[in-house]
Design a protein around this nucleic acid. Structure first.
Lengths: 249, 249
DNA sequence: CAGTGGTCTAGACCACGTG
DNA sequence: ACGTGGTCTAGACCACTGC
């Protein structure tokens, strides 16, 4: 028996007349967020969604179009509509915005990753919206470029959302695909606060530069479905013949 | 007599079957680019566009929707659809991405603007796609924050696109609205290359910091309709309790 | 109140991917 | 060949703006 859902029609006297396609959008997002449809899996076809929700196919289509704009699904003509799946490749191209002046996007390596669990400090609590007693998992590592260190990353995530992450054998180059695969956390966007700082003694030694050398400092928060803050990251970069790319539209 | 335009219908045997709504989108963009419809002015209503191009209203609507996504027009329900108009306010919020750690977006002032015309150097020719003999207009100025210098801007634009700009009485705080108003150049996006550098003697003196102080350096190219490169800008910023914001989606 | 853009429907056909 | 998403049509009604 086909599932049917009641929606607030425009004619309703409640004044609660959010457009049908947005109400359906919300329900579809919830079905993705709740893991009913998993990354890489097809969602029902547009005619089926139209039938399930008792609307015309144009309206169902409009709802799916919203999900597509928010990059929650990918439509492939002739094949179907699939829940967006983070992969190392697309995570890199979407969220890793460091480029070599001559040779395109930097393909970073990784070194010396350490993982610890601790009580969240004030900055972590603020950036991740945590309460005073919350704990975080901290990942520290050095990223390399042509096998030489160029960036120090200090990553903090709420322990409550990432149970088990601290026990991981090793930390892969890209995390957002891991977050999605293993922790059902679907990162949709990041916000980077960028400044320039002088290398302190420790950073200088790690990066192989002189103390006082100008470094790019990026404080970044990642947001998941529902604009939930799920990761705080501080990166210190020594950019030699390289740059950080930002676009404004 | 109503204007009629011939479009390539899908049935056409040429194999040239670009969707109607995209063909119409192109024609609408051209009418905006050519100044037939000016910034702030309404474009024809959707029923009129449908009639002009001999398509259903849904198709005309889809074409206008594309323009809206590209921020070339603004739709206002009940009123009409208007060519997007840059204003100091919206230029700031869209393209000036410097924030005070405590108090939101920085509202910069401006000092000591100088304007000169010269032969384009190698970097300008590369960034602006100019040939060897091309000339540029260079604007140099110091931007202030709470009345103190915090950023040095060196702006270069092709003389061929900005005739008369060099004779301007004074340079306003925001340029993209001026470019649109006085030179018919509609900036749609910018691409920023960000690095950290040490302040040299001149920069340090201008910004009131010690030589060697880490500064944010931003090399930015502005693109207009048709992805034409229309401005190259180098900014040197001393960010004290402030940051540059970038978002990735 | 007339006219604008916004939502919704139903149906037709096209382009494409898969089996 | 079939089923998917993509395009296009025609018509109805709603929500909003401005006269």
């Amino acid at each position: 028996m086909p599932l049917r859902v009641e929606l607030m029609r425009q004619g309703g006297q409640t004044g609660n007349s959010r457009p049908l396609y947005l109400q359906i959008r919300d329900k579809l997002i919830e079905r993705i967020r709740s893991w009913q449809w998993r990354p890489g899996e097809p969602i029902p076809t547009e005619p089926k969604l139209a039938e399930q929700y008792g609307v015309g196919h144009g309206t169902a289509r409009q709802a799916v179009g919203e999900l597509e704009n928010e990059k929650l699904v990918v439509r492939i003509q002739g094949a179907g509509t699939f829940v967006f799946q983070h992969t190392p490749k697309n995570v890199m191209s979407r969220f890793f915005s460091f480029f070599d002046t001559a040779h395109g996007r930097i393909k970073p390596g990784s070194r010396r990753a350490t993982v610890v669990v601790a009580k969240a400090n004030a900055q972590e609590r603020r950036e991740l919206d945590l309460d005073a007693r919350a704990r975080v998992i901290r990942i520290n590592r050095v990223r390399t470029r042509r096998d030489r260190p160029f960036m120090i990353e200090a990553i903090s995530v709420p322990e409550s959302l990432f149970r088990g992450l601290a026990d991981s054998e090793d930390i892969p180059d890209t995390l957002y695909d891991l977050y999605q695969r293993s922790h059902r956390i679907h990162v949709l966007r990041t916000e980077d606060h960028v400044t320039a700082v002088a290398a302190d003694r420790a950073a200088a030694r790690t990066l192989g530069v002189r103390t006082g050398m100008p470094l790019l400092k990026i404080e970044s928060v990642a947001f998941a479905i529902g604009d939930e803050r799920v990761e705080f990251r501080v990166s210190l970069c020594h950019l030699d013949k390289a740059y950080y790319l930002a676009q404004h539209k």
